[in-house]
Design a protein around this nucleic acid. Sequence first.
DNA 1: GTCTATACTCGGATAGAC
DNA 2: GTCTATCCGAGTATAGAC
Lengths: 217, 217
Amino acid sequence: MSAPHTGRRGSYAKGLAKREEILTRALDVISHEGYAGASVKAIAEAVGLSQAGLLHYFDSKEELFTEVLRKRDEVDALSRASGPDEPSLGRMRAEFIALVRHNTDVPGLVQLFSRLAADATDPAHPAHEFFLDRSARLREVLGAAVARAQGDGRLRDGIEPATLARMVQALADGMQLQWLVDPTVDMIGPVEALFALLEPPPPGEPDADQRSGATEA
Amino acid sequence: MSAPHTGRRGSYAKGLAKREEILTRALDVISHEGYAGASVKAIAEAVGLSQAGLLHYFDSKEELFTEVLRKRDEVDALSRASGPDEPSLGRMRAEFIALVRHNTDVPGLVQLFSRLAADATDPAHPAHEFFLDRSARLREVLGAAVARAQGDGRLRDGIEPATLARMVQALADGMQLQWLVDPTVDMIGPVEALFALLEPPPPGEPDADQRSGATEA
DNA sequence: GTCTATACTCGGATAGAC
DNA sequence: GTCTATCCGAGTATAGAC
């Protein structure tokens, strides 16, 4: 109970630095070599420590993995403060898609995320707050951009921004699952399709005629 | 290796019957009393057996839980053959929504599903095939209904039926996660919103005017 | 302050008695 | 067919070497 653990305390920088080093390394390993129900021991070895040695820096397996995900967000700068405070929907859309595309390269991380997200569903789970906060933040940014776009008429009207934000998030999470089960599926198409669906109808031309040949019924 | 296990073999009906009884009971318990990282032992007790006694009927914990989910599908008749072979999209939509609504009453099952789905993402997981099949089946039915509806002009055009099917499924799965994390969220709204988005634009009247007051930017 | 060794606990799996 | 007993592996806690 006196160790650097949470990073909140003590630790004359060495501890913190080491912790960061571990996280970076773990992130790297999981990203590239995958996460197959990775045990603490497996990560410890990949990082060059014993199991107990690794756990010296983290309270538990759950905390470790949560911090790995937090580190990932940091790196990906999902909650990136870069650019304007209130990015346009177009920009959000582009960034969101880019992120989904990027995830394609790090299946291990995506799996870790999905697994932990499902487990952290339980309010007693140490990562519960993390996911609660993280997803609320995402929806906030998304929702705000949507509201502004609706105000400008750049976005189909009649759906609550908050609902829309949930939809985008849910769709992306769901597509991750589908992609993990079968890596040949395209995570991006459906996400882009949703955004496309949201574009306002061109205000004058009914678009009920560009019928594709996709229907064979 | 000689037990009734998979139901494929042996089992002078007693074994099978008992197995079904166990599944029904387990389904009931998980549905109503929830699934909090339920152990085999917990289920065994709920069913009135010892841990080993329960495992006599199933190869492993994973197999047990997979079968519980299979039983659930059976009961919910998700892949219900009732009614016409090729239900209309409207009917599919109504049934789908009803199912989502029903899930609201069985959080334990939803959690079990979400957890196992994430775990079964790994090709080596015993439930991998189950989820692969199950979700392919759902998308098939959904996709077919979509294709027919598009053919009739009852559905917005320009999206592949297969893509649309994935979207609906992903959205629903993602909303389950959001609802599990925070049971006050509405799983249904976003799903209905997606279906609404798919309705074809009224062919003549541009609908860019029913602006709501939801935007404060 | 950092880490290894070790020991404890718990859940799932398996063998064998009844 | 069901139990008891046992095993095993993973996660966790602690003592103490360095």
